[in-house]
């Protein structure tokens, strides 16, 4: 039960965010490219910075063309192509976020948050420093979001998973 004070504090913040949501317009806390929604463009890459180090980032984001929203399939070249796509700008009760996925062939090499609004709910610190790095590590380790949804109110992970999944859809990675 030593954790209880921490848990309660976190919960109160969370609820304040949910309850405040209908009356607070989303506020941008991590500025990013304005065009982070669905169309994947290399220009949107690297805009947000939130992702930290990238394992295989030797290729600049402006490199090979990104895969547009439609169907899949890797080009049958011998060397796996380095690709990236920005996932859908996904709403959650605190605001919205979008995640860019970088991949070499079908191997996910990095995930970068290109857009993050927390609606002024004071969640940005937690989301930036705890939630996003952990989610990023989980997806990199599993090489998939591996789930279709999250039960129990955990808005940040749900939005992150949804955005990553839509980027994977664009890249044709299962």
């Amino acid at each position: 039960m030593r954790r209880a004070p921490f848990v309660i504090a976190g919960t109160i913040v969370g609820v304040a965010g949910v309850l405040a949501y209908p009356t607070h317009p989303p506020r941008l806390v991590v500025p990013s490219s304005s065009s982070s929604s669905s169309s994947s463009s290399a220009a949107a890459a690297n805009a947000g910075g939130g992702g930290g180090s990238s394992a295989a980032s030797s290729a600049p984001a402006s490199g090979p063309p990104t895969t547009p929203g439609t169907a899949p399939s890797t080009a049958a070249t011998t060397a796996p192509a380095v690709r990236s796509a920005v996932g859908a700008d996904t709403q959650y009760p605190y605001g919205d976020l979008a995640v860019e996925v970088k991949a070499t062939g079908n191997h996910i090499t990095d995930l970068i948050v290109t857009r993050l609004n927390d609606g002024g709910a004071g969640q940005s610190e937690f989301i930036d420093h705890q939630a996003i790095p952990l989610l990023r590590r989980q997806v990199l380790a599993a090489q998939t979001t591996n789930i279709n949804g999250v039960s129990g109110a955990t808005y940040t992970s749900q939005a992150y998973v949804d955005s990553v999944q839509s980027a994977l859809d664009k890249l044709g990675i299962k």
């Binding site: 949910v18 309850l19 949501y21 209908p22 929203g69 439609t70 169907a71 899949p72 399939s73 890797t74 859908a88 996904t90 709403q91 959650y92 009760p93 079908n106 279709n148 949804g149 109110a153 808005y155 749900q158 939005a159 949804d162 999944q165 839509s166 859809d169 664009k170 044709g172 990675i173 299962k174």
Partner: peptide
């Protein structure tokens, strides 16, 4: 590699939360 079927996705603000769809 098998073709990936891309679902339609949508998020709707309602009931004090966000309801998301995968179809």
């Amino acid at each position: 590699m098998t073709a990936v079927v891309v679902p339609a996705r949508h998020a709707e603000e309602v009931m004090g939360t966000v309801v998301s769809f995968t179809v």
